[in-house]
Computed example of a mutant assay.
Amino acid sequence: MALVTISGYPSAGKSTRVAQIQAYLQQRLAAEDYAGPKLSVEVLSDDVLNLERSVYNVLSGHRSEDSRSEKPARGALFTAMQRQMSTDKILIVDSLNYIKGFRYQMYCAAREMKLRVCTVHVVAAPDVCREWNTNRKDGRTYSTETFENLIMRYEEPSSMVRWDSPLFSILWLDTEIPGEQIWDALTKGVVKPPNGASLSVAKAPTDALHTLEQTTAGIVSQLFSEASGSSSGGKVVIAVSEGVKVDVTLPPRNITLAELQRLKRQFVTIHKKAITLGSTEKGRMDWSEESIGSKFSTFLGEHL
């Protein structure tokens, strides 16, 4: 039903805020006045996936954006998120999520599932995070070098971009969370349609190119035979296949075979791309002889 993306500096108190958000959402779902669908609230985090803080360690003397272990770790988090997202669940992803490109990737995955989304930015001053990181007793401390590197590379969420919106910021000094606003975003917010770029591509049948070539060649051959006997123009009926016929309106002039073949090549070239690369226009691409013949006859009538 919904995806909540948590983002913030290392040791900013994200997991504490996640616990508060989860408790609030569970309380609202269990309330007597709640009449919506039955939902569960689950948390996915680095700790749930047993990802150590060391996956974010930078390589000694290496200034690449990611360490060798961070990319696979991020991939594991994204895969687990995709597997756990569903229409009967509110999923909270508790991780650094400090790269805007990764948050966009998560946003697109949620849209593809037709889920509502929101981003929670857990805000804490770097000095506060340093102190909290140093004083951690749970064995999940970031090394000093890694901590400073993550602070430097952090890309702050912005309410001005669609993949971070709606955005809720919680300061380290706040005792409460904006529970009501988060609840409204997850239960009443607009469900955006999937991005066209994320739709699965509908491939043409394996014989589509052969059918395209054969159908257009047959129409050209018959049309030239009909047109060579008369230059008065008018409507000509062409048999595409058994029981399938199309009409082509000819102009009142002589038509050459070279002209028809040139138009055929143009038509085939236009449609080859849809065959080889596929089309996201599901249900609109029909590669039958009847459909191709109808489109080609219209194309000829417009260009002759």
Rank of each mutant, 00 (worst) to 15 (best):
Y9M: 11
Y9I: 13
P10H: 04
P10W: 07
P10E: 05
P10D: 05
A12C: 09
G13T: 05
K14S: 05
K14I: 04
R17P: 02
V18K: 01
A19S: 07
A19R: 05
A19Q: 06
Q20R: 07
I21H: 02
I21F: 05
I21V: 14
A23L: 02
A23S: 05
Y24N: 04
L25H: 00
L25R: 02
Q26N: 14
Q26K: 11
Q27C: 00
Q27M: 07
R28F: 06
L29N: 05
L29T: 05
A30P: 07
A31R: 12
E32V: 06
E32N: 07
D33E: 10
Y34E: 08
Y34H: 10
A35N: 10
A35L: 11
G36R: 10
G36D: 11
G36Q: 08
P37S: 13
P37L: 06
P37E: 13
P37M: 15
K38P: 08
K38D: 13
L39Y: 03
L39W: 00
L39E: 01
L39S: 03
S40D: 07
S40C: 03
V41H: 02
V41G: 01
V43T: 08
V43S: 01
L44R: 01
L44N: 01
L44H: 01
L44C: 01
L44K: 00
S45W: 03
S45R: 04
S45K: 03
D46E: 02
D46L: 06
D47E: 10
D47L: 15
L49V: 00
L49H: 04
L49A: 09
N50E: 08
N50G: 05
N50W: 05
L51V: 04
L51Q: 05
L51F: 00
E52S: 15
R53Y: 04
R53Q: 10
R53S: 08
R53A: 06
S54L: 12
S54W: 10
V55D: 12
Y56N: 10
Y56T: 10
N57S: 15
N57K: 11
N57D: 15
V58E: 10
V58K: 14
V58S: 15
L59D: 13
L59P: 11
L59T: 11
G61I: 01
G61W: 07
G61C: 11
H62T: 15
H62R: 14
R63D: 15
R63F: 15
S64E: 09
S64W: 08
E65N: 12
E65H: 13
E65Q: 12
E65K: 13
D66F: 14
D66L: 13
S67P: 14
S67I: 12
S67H: 08
S67W: 14
S67G: 15
R68W: 09
R68Q: 14
R68K: 14
R68F: 15
